[in-house]
Design a protein around this nucleic acid. Sequence first.
DNA 1: TTAAAAATTTAGACTATGTCTAATGTTAGA
DNA 2: TCTAACATTAGACATAGTCTAAATTTTTAA
Lengths: 141, 141
Amino acid sequence: MDAKAIKRSFDGSGFRCTPQRYAVMAFLMEHNSHPTAAEIFKAVNRVDPHSSRATTYNNLRDLVQAGLVREVAVEGRAARFDAKGMRHHHFICDRCGNVEDLEWYDVPRPATRSLGKRMLRECELIFRGLCTKCAPRRTSR
Amino acid sequence: MDAKAIKRSFDGSGFRCTPQRYAVMAFLMEHNSHPTAAEIFKAVNRVDPHSSRATTYNNLRDLVQAGLVREVAVEGRAARFDAKGMRHHHFICDRCGNVEDLEWYDVPRPATRSLGKRMLRECELIFRGLCTKCAPRRTSR
DNA sequence: TTAAAAATTTAGACTATGTCTAATGTTAGA
DNA sequence: TCTAACATTAGACATAGTCTAAATTTTTAA
């Protein structure tokens, strides 16, 4: 993949591009499966076992803070992560909890009145239901 | 509040309206602060200490399954709950993690094409930013 | 080049949140 | 009133994630 681009994305983030951080970013950019921290830790260490559990968790937090990675909380399950590439919405499966990307489209903002003194940063659309794997096959049910 | 209405809401849910479950429902209907399970447990037992921790957690899960309560996952924080009264959207504070209700309005559904074989159940809009308490006071910054 | 400072990694202890088990209690309905 | 199904409980357990303190690596500045 584009190693240079990954390294460049760290510029101005306040974080160094260490081998451990690079591995996390590269993995997330190559896989849009929204892995959990545990899955990322395992995957990264399968290739080159030089990132500890603590480092993986710390780095994920740093990357989220730097705005390079997004964390997705799922009810009753471990958090999932994705590289903030193209804008997209999320579909979360009621049954298996998997997170999938859905084509992005503009979302109407709430009325200024109802926001009050709150400072709005982003509007996120989350779709729920059954993913392709979990949806019943035919018209049965 | 409307004790009868709370009891009636259990009809057809497959769950009995026990004192412990009633207490959870009543608390959630009187407070729209989106409390965590731990907060609900404490609050309910302050009034009448007859619900154990396990029961509170079990009942919250049951009530969510019955569709009477909604669970809101927040990144890096404990899950929060609210009674599914009027439809509304959620505002989640980046800084303190508090969840607030925002007036409901219709959300455009994604294109059928991009949904594929997925079965869509609901579209949820989540706003992020700083709540009134956490937003900077004046125009400073 | 090198010494000191800053940032990063690490193992493993620790914390928070939530689930499970097995025993006990309660309720609805025959 | 008896019984089967349902519900509650204490406390052990599981999972996900954080923290600490020491070691390592990188950067800065002389």
